[in-house]
Design a protein around this nucleic acid. Structure first.
Lengths: 153, 153
DNA sequence: GGTGAAACGTAGGCCGT
DNA sequence: ACGGCCTACGTTTCACC
């Protein structure tokens, strides 16, 4: 169970500002939210301690890094035992092409986001990784042609 | 078209370090990658200019913020005209629950990631937003039960 | 929550390789 | 073209109000 943290308007402004620019200086941030630097820093530290702020991350351009192919892939397993799920999840954790692995409701068990250099690199992943796992029963690929909205990018 | 940026080992180490901690000071970063602070700062500035580094962002705990329900939703349109796609994409852009909107290949046109407070908040989105758009033809929801891997979180 | 001052980090000129 | 050194300047951090 997850406890919901109570936050006021200033906390929300802090989070919105840091979502836009996570490296913004505390001085700028303080001015943006209308607080003195020290009070602002205490707020940020409290949000970090409370677990609302999990960390900070650089946002990379996947295209510039050589990722030219992205697909969502649904995967069905042939056995619903805890052991086979864990084995599959371990394999996904090891595969660098797999950026996300979600356990979903529906006809199949998993939804993956897979990023590869190009179609042929994706084909290798499809046949050499997914195709060789004994737990995997059904694979369906949905190639991403574009992402008109992606707040998590 | 996207140009792929050439990077050496040190650049990759910089990006890996900043992916773990995007607020790491340049001094720490320089020591981590084995460079002097000034040389390290120049590398980072070059990666920002080249567009490899798109920015920095705080990573929030959705659960602590009151997001208790996440689903992937496939949406099929009843018309494939540019106008109806644009109208749908505008509506998704306006909906705060829609965190991602991908244009995919396959039987349906779109895959959404939707985040809501709980099931009843999701139901409201489903009926009041998706259900009232004239372009929308088919909606299928896949509720996320867990995410064993999520590098973009 | 704000103030101030010491400790710390950044940014850029400069020189060597 | 790239790394290291130095330093003026800006930022963070913390005890205190």
């Amino acid at each position: 169970m997850q406890s919901i943290v109570v936050m006021d308007d200033i906390d929300h402004r802090i989070l919105r500002a840091l979502s836009r620019d996570g490296r913004m200086s505390n001085l700028q941030l303080a001015e943006t939210v209308g607080l003195s630097p020290s009070a602002c820093l205490r707020r940020v530290a409290a949000l970090e301690r409370a677990g609302v702020i999990r960390g900070y991350r650089v946002v990379l351009d996947r295209g510039a890094l050589g990722v030219g192919f992205t697909a969502y892939v649904t995967v069905g397993l042939n056995s619903h035992t805890k052991a086979s799920q864990e084995a599959f999840e371990r394999a996904m954790d090891r595969a660098p092409e797999v950026v996300e692995c979600h356990n979903i409701t529906g006809a199949v068990e998993y939804l993956l986001r897979v990023e590869a250099a190009d179609l042929s690199a994706y084909k290798s992943f499809h046949t050499d990784v997914l195709g060789t796992l004994p737990q995997v029963n059904a694979i369906t690929s949905y190639v991403v042609m574009g992402s008109p909205k992606d707040d998590r990018a």
